[in-house]
Design a protein around this nucleic acid. Structure first.
Lengths: 336, 336
DNA sequence: CGATTATGTGAAAGCGGTTTCACATAATCG
DNA sequence: CGATTATGTGAAACCGCTTTCACATAATCG
């Protein structure tokens, strides 16, 4: 009795229970239009009754679709120290799951075009891939040729027609800079991020344009280069303090550098925001817990992930979606 | 000519090229011992020459093994705001990939035992699952019955014989507290984490034992409860400042609360570390960027992930590995 | 109203591996 | 040296689902 209790049912069982052929079961389960309503009902009832769940491997083998989307993260870009990517990934994963897709995580060094990741991606093990601000284009270009659906989070710097999602870096930087002027600052410096990255450049552009709009022209002296690290922010600020006489505002291209800047300012015996106002970018946990709490540009990171997933799903449906730019919001705290 | 250039080769092709049967190809590719060296060589050559890569779905269907390990994260425990999990996941992913396994990420609310995650896990879509400090045991217990290989990161509080990896919370807290005494403190308080969690309790135990070892007995007044948030750390510290006369040391059970405590101390017009010394736990980015830089207990988070993956792989090989406790290291900075 | 076109369905052939089973040959034994 | 056990191999069934193809029936047309 009840011999095969914990054996998962197959089409054979469903079709028998519903009184239809296996082909029809497949049609119903894949949303084929041309099935009589009665049979659809019969199949659905049988599925519900037996608690049927499609066998993914079998389905993949037969259909060629795996139901897997890779999220590819370059080991090198220590994106890991940043809660950012976790949140993005979370957003991606949620949306994919809602669409009955699974998230395959690939953390690897992408330098070599022939690593295991490259093989998986090319070998048809996934239906699509979402990349995290990848600078090494070689692999991506190969995959484009193979017509693997892809989404890139972060604007790719080669102006190819990749599908991508990104924060409005320009707009965010513009608003941050503007805010400093609005607070009465007259000499506003910027501590840039890595200028090699698109995001870094866009933020600088936003700063420049906001500066010009204010009627002034930013002198070269006001632009200090950083690399997103605490140390670089601190060093950049020290340079600025030396070289710029009456500096009263700084826009740092991320929160970590902003904290570095604040450290430098206080070590120089000056006070934030009384003497120098500081704005960061990211609105990370750091911004909330620092003293003084940091005014910072917030990006909706979860939304970024969701947008990436949605662009992927659109491509899977055969559409060719437009890139997606998400707007930012300035969160005003005590530092500016 | 060269019609089938970009079609992936199958066993049919390999076996023809190597001059053996498909069965033998399978044997070689799965490391079966009983194959003549000559044929092994022949197959390997053919594989290399044709750039063969196993078709995962086909392999899964036939063998019943998917090559997929789920990493399950409860949406609720906003572990996401914490870079912690990203690093753990990264470690897991790396080790799994080295062992030809893939990482399936599942971020979901695990409240309902019948969500999509539960179905995937039970439906044989993965070969094993790694959970992140899950408090809801219902699902896990079901999966244990189904003999799905599992690893839990973080000590599960039901003392079942789960396979788990964890940081030495007790030891870390012990060392932190000890350090404060060594620095000359005599009234050392603790700001606890969520006492409901095993980690929270273990850290409290470590504190208590270190206290007793020092020859004193910790009064109830010295124990302030927090919940790992900045606000709770600040509030707890304010309470301590009011109630404990000559407080000179605080061990906060994570860095975020430590920063909250420092904020409270400074608002009260006192100085860290001169008046009160503070030690945190996690050695997160926050510890490095705060002022004063925070002395904190470091856990090797990447190693935690790697350990979890290795325990999973051991189970897949049929072994029943022992739980794994990773030791901590006290990183001494300026706050204590 | 017979001829076409739509519509709905099932049989059967895959998809690309794994594994059982039977069998041939080589090694070991009494 | 014949009988037994080990070792190595290929044929073929099978894993569970998808999809083509042929066919029957119903709807539409001239």
């Amino acid at each position: 009795m009840a011999a095969k209790s914990n054996v998962r049912p197959t089409y054979a069982v469903i079709s028998k229970t519903a009184g239809v052929s296996e082909a029809t079961v497949s049609r119903v389960l894949n949303g084929d239009e041309n099935v009589h309503p009665d049979r659809i009902k019969a199949v659905q009832d049988a599925v519900a009754k037996l608690g049927y769940k499609k066998h993914r491997a079998a389905s993949s083998l037969a259909s060629g679709r795996t139901g897997l989307i890779a999220v590819v993260i370059d080991d090198d870009l220590s994106i890991f120290s940043d809660p950012f990517w976790a949140t993005v990934t979370s957003g991606i994963s949620r949306v994919l799951m809602e669409n009955d897709l699974q998230t395959l995580l690939m953390v690897a060094n992408l330098d070599s075009i022939d690593g295991p990741v490259a093989h998986s991606l090319q070998g048809g093990e996934v239906d699509g891939a979402i990349f995290f601000q990848l600078h090494k284009d070689a692999l991506i270009k190969r995959l484009v040729k193979q017509k693997l659906p892809m989404v890139i989070t972060g604007t790719p710097h080669t102006s190819n027609d990749f599908v991508f999602v990104d924060t409005d870096n320009f707009g965010g930087a513009h608003e941050a800079t503007n805010h400093l002027f609005g607070r009465g600052c007259t000499n506003v410096a910027i501590i840039t991020g890595d200028i090699e990255t698109t995001a870094g450049r866009q933020r600088l552009d936003g700063y420049n344009q906001a500066y010009r709009k204010s009627g002034h022209v930013p002198s070269k002296q006001l632009i200090a280069e950083g690399d997103y690290s605490f140390e670089s922010g601190k060093a950049a600020m020290q340079r600025l303090l030396e070289q710029v006489a009456n500096l009263d505002g700084v826009f740092a291209c991320n929160d970590v550098m902003a904290l570095g800047a604040i450290a430098a300012i206080e070590e120089a015996g000056r006070v934030v925001p009384d003497h120098i106002k500081v704005v960061g970018f990211d609105d990370s946990l750091l911004a909330q817990t620092s003293r003084p709490p940091l005014t910072s540009v917030r990006q909706d990171i979860g939304a970024l992930g969701e947008a990436a997933a949605n662009l992927m799903i659109a491509q899977l449906r055969g559409e060719t979606p437009e890139p997606c730019i998400l707007s930012t919001e300035l969160v005003i705290r005590e530092s500016a």
